[in-house]
């Protein structure tokens, strides 16, 4: 069996990230020092979360249009991976924040946005567990998924612009703004984002396929039992 091209790309980009992430040049900035390399590992978690949750919503919309269980499988596994990435992003962000900003948790809109995103998708899983019927579970959780994501979007992209943030691109922290422009960082940062996001999609795809197999196996068992 050959791996498809995007899986190979994912592997290549992740190795590139790890190797160049530590050996490549980075700008010398006060406060951050070497920890700026976290940019290659912490920020992609965040991008990956948004992308994968977006794909979850995409499949939820797909389910409402054509109610196939495979769409629901993809939506829920994407939500799982999104929670994993968001959780990793939060934890790594907290560790980084402790060192550079001095606190585990700072009142930063991006941090709060990520935390609320986690809450929403945990609520999504709770909702799924409270529904018995398969079709109903798929439909109602798809509705909640789309609804919640629609309110999450302004939280992630509009609110941070209204407030000062310690994060780059929001003013308030001069040491951070410079690196937006640095081409050395970009050379590793963009591949890193794509690599990690592809890894997330890969894991999602594996889980979705597993779920499908489980369902097929269950159906077969039922057929056997009914004979």
């Amino acid at each position: 069996m050959k791996l498809s091209w995007w899986k190979l790309l994912c592997i290549a980009l992740l190795f590139y990230t790890v190797i160049m992430g530590f050996l490549g040049p980075v700008p010398r900035l006060a406060i951050l020092n070497e920890s700026i390399r976290n940019l290659y590992f912490h920020v992609p978690m965040w991008f990956g979360m948004v992308l994968i949750l977006g794909s979850s919503v995409f499949h939820s919309i797909g389910y409402l249009r054509t109610p196939l269980m495979s769409n629901d499988d993809k939506a829920v596994t994407a939500a799982h991976t999104g929670i994993l990435f968001g959780g990793l992003g939060l934890v790594t962000g907290m560790a980084w924040a402790r060192v550079t900003w001095g606190d585990w948790w700072v009142n930063d809109p991006k941090l709060n946005g990520a935390a609320i995103g986690m809450l929403i998708y945990c609520a999504y899983l709770v909702l799924r567990n409270s529904l018995e019927d398969e079709g109903q579970r798929a439909r109602i959780s798809a509705i909640y998924n789309i609804f919640a994501f629609a309110t999450l979007v302004p939280l992630l992209f509009i609110l941070p612009r209204l407030t000062d943030s310690l994060h780059p691109g929001n003013g308030g922290n001069p040491g951070f703004n410079q690196y937006d422009l640095d081409s050395d960082l970009r050379l590793v940062f963009y591949p890193a984002v794509i690599g990690w996001a592809l890894l997330g999609l890969w894991l999602t795809q594996l889980n979705a396929r597993l779920r499908r197999l489980e369902r097929i196996a269950e159906e077969k068992n039922e057929v056997v039992a009914s004979r």
Binding site: V126, L127, F147, L152, L159
Partner: peptide, 9 residues
């Protein structure tokens, strides 16, 4: 549980 996170923004 469902409404709180949605209403926070």
């Amino acid at each position: 549980v469902l409404s709180f996170p949605v209403i926070i923004p």
